[in-house]
Amino acid sequence: MKKFIFTGILLLLAGVSNSQFKTADCVAKLNGFTFLKTYKLDNPSKESEFSYVFSKDNSYIIIICSKDGNPSESSVSLFDANKNMLASSYDEANKRHYYALAYNCKATGMYYMKFKFDKPSGDCSSVLAFKR
């Protein structure tokens, strides 16, 4: 219920631009995680990369949202500071895209989130959230 109230309030507050609609959509999926950052993915024909210092013993979630609410052709991959790939929200074996990727962090450090779009699908955004 809380998340729906928050989504509604965000929409009302916003003056309601597309990116804020998307943020609200993403935040509504947080499910117990605390919202931290928004990443605008305004050019889905390109890969986008962002970094963030993740903290040991925190759990993080990265959620992707698109204007049509279905980011079926997009994925996020997570890399550590040495650019070792930890995982992706795209399951290559089963050819399946997931809307989110979660990470139970055991090593504090710089991490890189790389967003990739298999097909251009309009503006997207992503939110990062955490819980401990």
């Binding site: 995982a87 992706s88 990727l101």
Partner: peptide, 26 residues
């Protein structure tokens, strides 16, 4: 001093979301 040890992580689906189970440590 901060030390970092990389170990390959595991992946599980938890509540329908792919979740990285970290084996590295700092």
């Amino acid at each position: 001093e901060i030390t970092y040890t990389y170990k390959e992580s595991k992946m599980e689906i938890v509540d329908g979301i792919p979740t990285i189970v970290d084996k590295s440590e700092s």
